[in-house]
Design a protein around this nucleic acid. Structure first.
Lengths: 287, 287
DNA sequence: CACAATTACGAGGGTCGTAAAAATG
DNA sequence: CATTTTTACGACCCTCGTAATTGTG
């Protein structure tokens, strides 16, 4: 069995061509490397180099050996990577969601159940979420559509609805209800990173002129300072996010209503059963 | 990067369950192994074991790490195997042949061209020979049929013909020529290990009763002592293998005639070009 | 009390670096 | 004469073994 350090040295020599350069890159002295290579040949009982008095090169077998060595080094690194990332996955929960609200709703519950672990959240589309769940990239995901995959355990979570938040003096503010079609061509303020909701808007409002804001503060300022349309989620209002300067007008389209589903890998169902109970309970309270 | 010796130690512990047993198998002391495992955890910055006061076990990550370690050890061994066998292949010529005569004919020529190398020969069927040539298991092969594969350089070598060698008092000894069909049901002495010729006999002589002999001496004795049929090759007679107590009767079937083809990998054609020249020359002389 | 793991300490092997020599272009 | 490799020698790191300690079934 060959030790890893000697494989690294061989690979370095193969890469840099001379013992001196390779030794420099390896942060060892040249004689040390010279000896190592000799030792390697001894251990294999094979000649790997052609030695002229002031030049040393890999022979045919040496080239093969160097290839093998590089290979094994790469796999050694991959192994370490795999072990560490596996360990990290044991000590962290990654939540993937199709939009923001479920994240804010679930975070406290996650904290409560997995206090010792690091909890991360990410937003993505259904396909990415589902694949990520199978890959182990996500532990729990929230979709805006049910998932039938048999590897995946999926249960209904909560609903969210978005309404129009129109400026007081905007014509649409007078109406008792509106449709996306009514907003055609309007300037629309949006928070960036609202996941699938952005697509809902783009798909349903013809020629909408979107002004996505990456910062909450900027968005809030602009809502106050302009007469541009924006949206308000029933969930966010229930959570206390209310503005007096805007008129809430219900949107009639079905696309303005979403139902969220929370899912995990079926084989990890038991691991998360207590958490799922809390989620159900919390959803009941928030009806 | 993890050194190989420590991976071996981890794998041994995973296999034997306790430090003591693993240490014994590794021929090191238990404290040494204990320290190594701690060092491994330090290097990875990860806990791999659950330590009760008088018991140590792999945790979940540790199990993964042990799997990885076994993997890498296997690959390390495979690497060494590959390097050594590659080196051996550089210092040896392996001749594969469909039958014996080409081997005896080519050996002296191989010796002459590759004096320093170890030269080995084997018998096999066409498919094995061709695949082996591609695999690197054989360097040169002799087939009893041409090969069209484009990776393979193939040239006609020599012909061989087998005749009936009938005992003086056998009815077939009176004939000027015979066919395989005439030998139906007869007892037939054969040398074992004559490659495809055995199949030629079995395929063409209905109900032949074969008495394959694994030793040349035993075969020769039986040829002298019995009235069983046997065969004689024109090549072998030319090489001086002649018996007065047998009558040579030509066999009319085409199957009794073979043409040999000698082949190497097309990309190694140049390496063997001098050898191939000698082979051609020798074949001309032996016509 | 046998067995398992850890801690402590000292020994030895092996790799390393420095210095010097030899060879090449 | 700069560059490269090899040899020689001594130092240090690191793994190892022995012995002792603690804890468990």
């Amino acid at each position: 069995m060959l030790e890893t350090y000697i494989l690294e040295q061989l690979a370095a020599f193969a890469e840099y061509g001379t013992l001196s350069k390779a030794a420099e890159k390896l942060h060892i002295s040249q004689p040390a490397l010279s000896r190592s290579m000799k030792k390697l040949e001894d251990e294999l009982g094979i000649t790997l180099f052609v030695r002229n008095k002031s030049k040393i090169e890999l022979n045919e077998t040496g080239l093969v050996a160097a290839e093998c060595a590089k290979n094994l080094i790469a796999q050694n690194k991959a192994m370490i990577e795999r072990i560490i990332s596996f360990d990290r996955s044991l000590h962290s929960i990654v939540l993937g969601s199709c939009t923001t609200y479920p994240i804010t709703a679930l975070m406290p519950i996650l904290q409560q159940h997995f206090g010792g672990m690091s909890i991360t959240s990410e937003m993505a589309y259904t396909e990415t979420l589902v694949n990520g769940l199978k890959d182990g990239r996500y532990d729990i995901i929230v979709l805006n559509e049910p998932c039938e995959d048999e590897e995946i355990f999926c249960q209904r979570f909560i609903d969210e609805r978005i309404d129009l938040a129109a400026p007081q003096n905007h014509p649409l503010a007078q109406k008792s209800e509106v449709s996306f079609a009514d907003m055609a061509g309007e300037n629309i303020l949006l928070l960036a990173n609202i996941g699938f909701w952005f697509d809902v808007c783009k798909d349903n409002i013809p020629n909408g002129k979107y002004l996505p804001q990456h910062e909450r503060n900027a968005f809030d300022e602009l809502v106050g300072a302009t007469d541009f349309l924006c949206f308000s989620s029933d969930r966010m209002r229930k959570a206390g996010y209310i503005r007096d300067d805007r008129v809430i007008v219900p949107i009639t389209d079905d696309a303005a209503k979403a139902t969220y589903y929370i899912a995990c890998l079926d084989r990890k169902k038991k691991e998360y059963s207590a958490f799922f109970s809390s989620v159900r309970e919390s959803a009941m309270n928030d009806l």
